[in-house]
Design a protein around this nucleic acid. Sequence first.
RNA 1: GGGGCUGUAGCUCAGCCUGGUUAGAGUGCCGGUCUGUCACACCGGAGGUCGCGGGUUCGAAUCCCGUCAGCCCCGCCA
Length: 597
Amino acid sequence: MSREPAALQTAYRDAACGQVDASWVDKEMQIIGWVHRRRDLGGLFFVDVRDRTGLLQLSFGPDWSTSDALGLVAELNPEDVIQARGVVALRPDPNADMLTGEVELRVSELERVSVSDPLPILVYQPPEEDLPSEELRLQHRILDLRRPEMQHNLRLRHAATNAIRASLSEQGFCEIETPLLTRQTPEGARDYVVPSRVHKGQFYALPQSPQLYKQLLMCGGFDRYFQIAKCLRDEDLRADRQPEFTQIDVEMAFVRQDDVFNAAEQMFQRIWKDCMDRDLPGAWERLPHAQAMERFGTDKPDLRIPWEIQDFTDVLTGIGFGIFDATKSAGGRVRGFVVKGGASLSRSRVDAYNELAQEAGAKGALWLKRSEDAWSGQPSKVIGDDVSAELVAQFGIEPGDLVFLVAGEDDLTSRALDLLRRTVAHELDAVATDEEHWLWISEFPLYLKDAETGLPVPAQHAFTMPSNPDPDLIRDDPLSVTAVAYDIVYNGIEFASGSIRCHLPEVQRVILEATGLSPEEIEARFGFLLEAFRYGVPPHGGYAVGLDRVVAVMVGAASLRDVIAFPKTSAARGLLEQSPSNVDPAELKELGIRVDT
RNA sequence: GGGGCUGUAGCUCAGCCUGGUUAGAGUGCCGGUCUGUCACACCGGAGGUCGCGGGUUCGAAUCCCGUCAGCCCCGCCA
């Protein structure tokens, strides 16, 4: 991934442990590191000494070690820090599994630089034993971080940010920091809030993203900005969601969508090249949001799964199957997908998928199996020869295939079919894990309908350019308007999202008003942005990459916690530093805060 | 806010469903033997509030209720 500097030598060491190779043979040297494993053979001792570069075997024997060294080596604990001096020699019996397995350091003198207490969790990972529980790993994070996997993850993360800085800098971007102490803006998620001592009763908000600032920077004449930005959201956690996370935040002025796509593709190509030594294609596939929902039921489709959702309404209605006919007359559709070779799934399996569809909010999932000469499944009784022929012709259903069908409103069927498609594909091993799909999802709707109030709420954020910036259309039929907004989806994972921003103040006001905000509220919350828009706004847009997620994919981590040095638990606690914690009452008083518990 | 899984020796786990002598294994730790190991080997030893509280029972690691913590998911969150 990244090249080590040739010289890691310091006053304590002539080389790092993993750097010692045959070229060192017969040379006298000193080395320093942690005691990884010790093997005591009575008269001889072997110690594997470790630093982040790897392991080096030290050997101790009466013919080449001082008696002090022999006395000390017998007492070493795992994770003591030791410094050894001696001569490098070829091993009589090399260890091919070890990076430095050809050689060893025959130690003459040994010094214990730091003593380790007995370990609560081992750094050395016994074969075929599970890692210590996540709780203990986080509590004793410094020991956990010493493991090669964590070392690798965080160093690859570093390599990724290096590649990002290099690519963006070469493309003319300027890295600028924006405030952490800022003001609340209604951006969907709950804010973390910081009390002001100087202004009692008032609070700063920690940013959910630098969104407004980066747009202000565009207005401020920095036509290409980026930042590796900490973002904070006070929402419940998931394996792929931390309250504190990092975005590669990018914004460009004087651009249209294609310019942004091009810049982002270049950046990811650079990351993949520098960190994984792989060439990514540019000009990624583009899929409008509406099509993604139609064909895959989700705005982040995993294209490694071959099956696509299709519309069965015309073929399966009017043939005497009540559920389908009722769905159609209620304005719904019958949608489904064909599982190639899925007829081998057991009845109980298929029933379990029905329950899954119900959990997703659908009435249930019906199924159809085709064998050599017959159909089975709930609707099979009404499938005559005509319908059978139609199914085969239109959907390519072959003997041995299984079809899942969900009837209802598109919102519900999409959700259920997406969940089924992914679950069944994983269980049947139908995911082409050797493929990599980079995908732009574009033309997101500008608004979504709020389930409770029925009001349009911005689908992205409120500063997105409509595809058709017609104020009348936005006023009259806001939910029909699409936005110049896009996501990067990699194998079903949302890597990034962004948009072209609305630089037209009069359109921006209409967009905000359509969400039910009064002009006074708009002025109070976004006045500083609209003010900036009065003095010549460059057309601009950008995107933000979820760095933690990208790195997690690069290293194959199941959880973001494995690519963050000091992450929070799923209850948003820091186990190492024991956060959050109570605050001294005197301090609270100074802040003018009384705590109700 | 809701649902699910987990919690037993320093660590990783078995035992729990079907309650019953003294709660086991591996590893780590301590002591001993061993001059070419690399998961060193061999011998011996210590180590337990079965997360915590309550209940049922003659008897609870085991059954029930509550609670705490970790993990996963829904809600929430781009």
